[in-house]
Computed example of a mutant assay.
Amino acid sequence: MKKVLLLLSDGFEAVEASVFTDVIGWNKLEGDGTTDLVTVGRKEKLKCTWNFTVIPEMHISEVNVDEFDALAIPGGFEEADFYEDAYSEDFLDIIRQFDKAEKIIASVCVGALPIGKSGVLSGRNATTYNFVNSKRQKQLSEFGVNVIFNEPIVIDKNIITSYNPSTAFNVAFKLLEMLTSKENCNNVKKLMGF
């Protein structure tokens, strides 16, 4: 079984997290059955950007990276305190451990910013939120990242980044393809109506 760690911060965007739970879940039930997902956070309860509460299955302090095959990070809003958790040392350390082990790291929108802050994207290609005068893309470049401005999804070795919420499903499907196969991913897409 391939396990995905869905790393959640206070203020994350639910739609960006739900694509991972749904695509991995659909694969577990209707696809090749080889994937599972565990939600992880720094707190017992996390408040999403638009105010509903999520209870992660595991606390970040309990994570053993060796038990997982991939990491998924949804973005969120600064106004909802996304960066307080996402820029914390334990959050960044999880990212570093996954990259050191050359495991897949998939992010949506500003989920790329903690990856950049962790240092693992230094000198590599990536993207992040692409509107509001590219403020977030400028922030990503300040972490030493080669920002690709006009590509919706950028893959550099084991790291997938994307430039806004509209890319979320495609990131989740790319993660599934990398964990399983293109054929299996296309089957799950078809079953989900894509």
Rank of each mutant, 00 (worst) to 15 (best):
V120I: 11
T167P: 04
T167K: 04
M1I: 08
A70Y: 04
S61W: 04
L7H: 10
G33I: 12
G193V: 03
L191H: 05
Y83M: 12
R96N: 12
A112V: 09
G76H: 06
Q139S: 06
I153M: 05
I60T: 04
E57G: 14
N64Y: 05
E78P: 01
A172R: 04
G11W: 07
A172M: 07
V147I: 09
Y163W: 13
L8K: 12
L121P: 03
S18Q: 11
V19A: 07
L113F: 03
G75R: 07
A168W: 07
V63P: 05
K182I: 05
G116F: 01
V171P: 00
G11M: 06
N170P: 01
I73H: 10
L29T: 11
G193Y: 06
R136W: 12
A86I: 10
N146S: 10
E183M: 09
K174N: 10
V19Q: 03
T128W: 04
N125S: 13
G31V: 12
L6N: 08
V40Y: 04
N27T: 08
N146A: 00
N164F: 04
T127I: 10
D156N: 13
G11Q: 07
E78R: 11
F77G: 04
G76Q: 01
D22F: 02
D10H: 12
L46N: 05
D66R: 06
I105L: 00
K103Y: 11
A101V: 05
K182D: 05
G25H: 08
R96L: 04
A112F: 07
T49I: 05
V110H: 01
F173T: 03
F131E: 13
K3T: 08
K45C: 01
V15H: 06
F194G: 06
T34Y: 02
N51D: 14
A168R: 06
Y87P: 00
I105V: 15
E57Q: 15
F52Q: 12
L5M: 13
L140R: 06
K182G: 00
A126N: 02
L140S: 11
T53Y: 10
G76R: 05
V65R: 01
S122N: 15
C48D: 12
E151Q: 14
P74D: 09
S134I: 02
L5D: 11
L113D: 04
L176D: 03
V63Q: 05
F173N: 10
K117M: 12
W50N: 14
V65L: 09
I160G: 08
F194K: 14
F52S: 11
A101H: 13
S107H: 03
I115N: 06
G11D: 06
F91Y: 15
N164Y: 08
R124L: 11
F98V: 10
L7D: 02
K135D: 13
C48T: 15
E78W: 03
L8T: 08
E78L: 14
S118T: 11
R96T: 07
T39N: 03
E89T: 13
E177G: 01
E102P: 00
L8Y: 05
K138G: 03
N158L: 05
S141E: 15
Q97S: 12
